[in-house]
Design a protein around this nucleic acid. Structure first.
Lengths: 339, 339
DNA sequence: TTGTAGGCGTTATCAA
DNA sequence: TTGATAACGCCTACAA
């Protein structure tokens, strides 16, 4: 049923036209050797005339390399991941690799089989540290070079690029403490192990201060969950004076729903998130957030991956420094009862 | 310099273990023939035991197929494109194809060479109809199956999936007309040919009505351009009572900057965009927009692409119906914003 | 239903 | 610096 594309010229055609051997053409194309000006001219002329280029698959069968790398995302609509892809794409382009993007959300059903298939088509993979255990095991079994993102590597001996989640939380916590907030609620996402790290950081920032903490759990790190939990978080029992969300998407949802509920942000409650998503800056009120260096994480992860692929003694320093970005949503006038 | 990954088992190892020929294993793997229960059992046992799977590259050299398809984006951070990728990823998964995402923004320098290289690694490509002419020519020359998105195909005979931009503009124009707006400014993005289509649609909706139009041009369809142009658009000469932006990103930038400038939206000026981006709904004020069916476009484009690849007589109906989503930013009253 | 044998387009080895 | 030739892992007539 499938119509094969018309076969183009091969290395043999080029060799014939240039009156050299295929070996010469091959070496010429890979720049792995110098040639006499004469041969070089003839070969490049033939290449141009026949509009020929190497067949990556035939090449791959010999070299064992595909020329592709993959990145497995949990949700391509999350700007955090999008920025990561941007960084990874830059790194891939620099290494002349093609980037295959797999959205795990779409391939959930036969995930494992899909991932195994993907692994055969790439030279290496960038994946989330919060992928399910069996998937990660399969990945290791396949011997595919892997670099993790988001949190520490689930197994020792593998690279992982991320920000220090505890410190990020702590920075945000300090900010809230200094602004006088004392009743802090957290909308976490427990499936990501580092959600707890962030929350611990926030709490630790209040050491020695009399503060009240409460935690809620979202089923997915998306705006809709922020909206869904908003009334529970902000209107049940005594209101918090500040709400921290696991990420900006949920924070955005909280802010929007607060408005619908008639809760003033930051008038009655402050709201902050993580990731420093582009839309937080434009929001009304603009959103305080901790920049988790999404793009840099993607780029560095790709850099590490290429090192692992090439067997280069991999450099270290895979923990990036996050940065607190204070905006309107944590303006201090939201304290209901200043102490 | 490059450390080759240890070579795994081959089809010959499997054949030997199952005591059959390699041809049998091949046919078995491709499901292109039925076998005796005995042979089938032996082969699948060997496959499992050796944990062997087909080498896609060796396979591709014979079949001429890579098992990959590509999508070329203009800006992966634009939620419109992200949604398209989501749709395309679903389509690709359904066809058991891997999706290679190329962010043109990152590969601008040697664009043409990069795209040619990409074309050799995929069975087909989904690309924007507003790619530069030389690139499109090269694409056609390479005989790669192509499906366009965004606007009509730049050459006859190729598939293109998009919404009717004129109608989309017209819907929005009618809405503004009915709400009593008469001084309309448009922040266009002329590099996309269909920016003019949208604007024409908006204007035509005011046929027979006394209205005033003015057009501005952005250099890129991004939030920053909306912010940059905001004061010019809203504070120079006589203020428009409604501003339409080429897309939501720019509209979001306009709204944010209007707030910074002290211009009430929608109190003093209404603002609307195209794409119905997720963040428009959460904005304050929420953003009126025309849903250009990003995800459906991506999915349908991938469907068409697989048809073209397989040589199936391609079905038609590639113009999707857009949908007006009215929200607060074009509210007719001058109620003051809560924040 | 199963096997034989040649070929796909490239790289790698080694000799010239 | 260049060339012959044997791989690489799989597919596909065609024969049995």
């Amino acid at each position: 049923m499938s119509t094969l594309r018309k076969r183009g010229p091969t290395i043999r055609d080029v060799a014939r036209m240039a009156e050299v051997s295929t070996a010469t053409v091959s070496k010429f194309m890979n720049g792995s050797q110098r040639f006499s000006a004469d041969v070089e001219a003839r070969v490049s002329k033939a290449v141009k005339e026949l509009e020929w280029s190497l067949n990556p698959m035939a090449r791959g069968i010999m070299t064992g390399q595909t020329g592709n790398v993959g990145i497995v995302l949990l949700d391509i609509r999350n700007p955090h991941f999008t920025s990561m892809v941007k960084g990874a794409a830059r790194g891939a382009a620099a290494a002349k690799l093609n980037l295959i993007v797999a959205d795990a959300a779409e391939t959930r059903a036969p995930e494992l089989a899909v991932l195994k298939a993907l692994a055969r088509r790439v030279d290496g993979l960038i994946v989330s540290a919060r992928l399910p255990g069996p998937i990660i095991d399969a990945l290791f079994a396949s011997k595919t070079p892997v670099v993790f993102y988001g949190g520490p590597s689930p197994r020792p001996g593998y690279h992982s690029v991320c920000c220090d989640n505890y410190m990020a939380g702590r920075m945000l916590g300090s900010h809230l403490r200094d602004r006088g907030f004392r009743k802090i609620s957290y909308v976490g996402f427990p499936i990501a192990q580092w959600s707890a790290e962030r929350w611990r950081g926030v709490q630790d920032a209040f050491e020695g201060v009399d503060a009240f903490f409460k935690e809620y759990q979202a089923a997915a790190p998306v705006t809709e969950e922020g909206e869904r939990l908003a009334s529970m978080v902000m209107l049940s029992g005594d209101m918090p004076d500040a709400v921290v969300a696991f990420n900006d998407l949920m924070a955005l949802g909280l802010v929007a729903e607060a408005r619908a509920l008639g809760v003033k942000v930051p008038g009655q409650v402050a709201i902050a998130g993580f990731d420093n998503t582009a839309y937080g800056r434009l929001q009304n009120p603009s959103l305080t957030s901790v920049d988790m260096m999404s793009e840099a994480v993607g780029e560095l992860a790709m850099q590490r991956l290429t090192e692992v692929i090439q067997g280069t003694p991999a450099s270290h320093g895979n923990v990036l420094t996050s940065r607190l970005v204070v905006r309107e949503s944590t303006s201090p006038d939201s304290r209901v009862n200043p102490y």
